[in-house]
């Protein structure tokens, strides 16, 4: 066991322990660490967006006499009009610009990636039968799963008879999906705790090899 000599490792370790005290109950040490994180994050984000966004994309260009960049600057400043009740209506203009540009950019791309390609992937194609029996079984399960889950969310007709049975099968697929997501979530949360314990035992206390 050899304790870390770096004071920043000590700061990180002590703040980690402050956060862990919440496992017992809410307390001032936890609150201090939480508020410190919020404050530091706000400052960090402000600095990084200034140096990587505002300065190179607006200030530097204006400094070179490229006055066209006044347009995005003015549009950006209009966001602050929300603080003045008389001029707050002006915030709609940059929002309208963002919505228009954002939708134009994302709608075709999202449709292609999340709808067209996914429908193609769900279809039973000759290739599904070609690779192996396992691939064929997977393709059939996927096909049945998508259809039955879609049926479950079909509310225009009362779920009776064949529609009821299909919707029930859809629920089973949904539950399996939720179970898989829950299992993965447990793994993710445990992984975060493992990371912190590896840091405390390794980088701070030197009991295990450091991270």
């Amino acid at each position: 066991m050899h304790l870390a000599a770096d004071p920043w490792v000590w700061v990180a370790a002590i703040l980690t322990l402050f956060i862990f005290t919440f496992l017992y109950k809410d307390n001032p040490l936890y609150k201090f660490a939480e508020h410190l994180l919020v404050g530091v994050s706000a400052g960090y984000y402000l600095a990084i967006y200034w140096h990587n966004g505002v300065k190179p994309n607006i200030i530097d260009h204006l400094g070179q006499g490229q006055l066209i960049y006044l347009i995005p600057l003015i549009l950006g400043l209009m966001f602050f009009t929300i603080f003045i009740p008389k001029t707050s209506y002006m915030i709609r203009w940059p929002i309208a610009f963002l919505l228009g540009a954002g939708s134009g950019l994302s709608i075709p791309a999202t449709f292609q990636a999340n709808i067209a390609e996914q429908i193609k992937g769900t279809m039973l194609q000759p290739l599904s039968f070609y690779y192996s029996n396992a691939a064929l079984i997977n393709a059939i399960i996927l096909f049945v799963g998508v259809l039955t889950v879609l049926t479950y969310f079909f509310f225009s007709k009362e779920h009776k008879g064949a529609l009821y049975t299909t919707a029930r099968i859809g629920i089973i697929f949904l539950m399996i999906g939720f179970g898989a997501s829950f299992g993965y979530t447990v793994m993710a949360r445990v992984s975060l705790l493992i990371g912190r314990l590896q840091f405390l035992l390794g980088n701070w206390l030197g009991i295990i090899p450091s991270w």
Partner: peptide, 21 residues
């Protein structure tokens, strides 16, 4: 959406367990 669909760029991912599903 933007690299694969638009430019045909091959993409892989390293994601958290929460996002994997």
């Amino acid at each position: 959406s933007y690299a694969y669909s638009r430019y045909g760029q091959k993409v892989a991912a390293g994601v958290t367990a929460v996002m994997a599903a």
